[in-house]
Simulated scan of single mutants.
Amino acid sequence: MNTVSDHALLMDRIYRWQRRFGIYDATRKYYLLGRDPLLSGLAPPPGGCVLEIGCGTGRNLVKAARLYPQARFNGIDISQEMLTAAQAAIETAGLQDRVRLARADAANFDPQSLFGQNEYDRIFISYAVSMIPQWQRVMEAAVAGLSPGGELHIADFGDMQRLPRWFKSAVDTWLGWHHVTPRAELFEVSSELAATHGGTVGVQCLHRGFSWLVTIRKA
């Protein structure tokens, strides 16, 4: 069994019961605090196409599709459990005509074969960088897959350095139980990627460093 399959099975084991009993979205709203600021900043051009990497239950795709009714959306996730929930959410919202899903490993997928899409105006990753083993490779592929002037938006856990030490320690322990590893090098890696592609980078620290936001704009 290869590494990709192992990771997919791990994600399915983690989310199977959370998805079926509605626990995932009910709990994540209390600590995935950067999601809505990320979505508010997407602003895809009219007629543009947006990709979410690690789309989970589809919560972000539904909200983004409602925020930007003139855009089209694709979503991928490595977990079939998450995709089952996402498809149900999209159908309930009546968005099947503008939102398409596929199961794929973000570190190795072809958007042309999955969606007939060569490049994207916006790509976003919401609290998935900290769960993807090959996260730097995924970010590199995402920037490469942007159209000229396109943007990669990332929200994830920050370094929490401005929070009480006991709180940071407790959060780190809890995240570890869920196979989540905040990426302390996220800002540095983002700056290097932007420079490599002749683009620009913007970063934000929210909630005393609990949440980080990154925007990489391709030249």
Rank of each mutant, 00 (worst) to 15 (best):
I76G: 00
R162N: 13
H153M: 09
L163N: 06
H179E: 13
A104Y: 02
A8Q: 08
G209V: 04
N108D: 15
R20I: 08
A194F: 06
N60H: 06
G48W: 00
Y30I: 09
L61V: 02
A104D: 02
N60G: 11
G150A: 08
R59W: 08
L175C: 09
F73H: 04
D172A: 13
K218R: 15
T215D: 06
V189L: 09
G34H: 01
A144D: 09
N74T: 11
V138I: 05
L101H: 02
F109E: 04
R217M: 07
A106G: 06
I23N: 09
V143I: 13
L95F: 07
A89I: 01
K29M: 11
E119T: 14
T196G: 06
H207A: 10
Q161M: 12
Y15L: 11
M82T: 01
L193H: 04
Y31H: 15
A26V: 12
I154K: 05
I14R: 14
P164M: 07
S113V: 12
A144N: 11
R59K: 12
L39G: 02
R137M: 11
M1H: 12
A85R: 02
T181A: 12
P69S: 07
L33M: 07
P46D: 12
D156P: 01
F124A: 08
E151S: 14
W135N: 05
A170N: 09
V138L: 02
P133V: 06
L39D: 03
V143D: 02
L101V: 11
G94W: 09
S211W: 01
R28P: 02
T196R: 15
R162D: 15
L32I: 05
D6F: 14
L213K: 01
S130N: 08
Q134D: 14
Y127I: 06
A93M: 05
D6I: 14
G75V: 04
L186T: 01
R16E: 14
G150C: 03
Y68E: 01
D110K: 09
T200L: 12
M131V: 14
A65E: 01
D6S: 11
P37Q: 06
Y24E: 14
A142V: 02
L146C: 06
G48K: 03
H197Q: 11
A64W: 00
P133N: 08
Y120F: 15
I123P: 01
H207K: 13
K29R: 15
D77C: 09
P46F: 02
L206R: 05
E192R: 15
A85L: 05
K29P: 00
Y120R: 09
Q161C: 12
R66C: 12
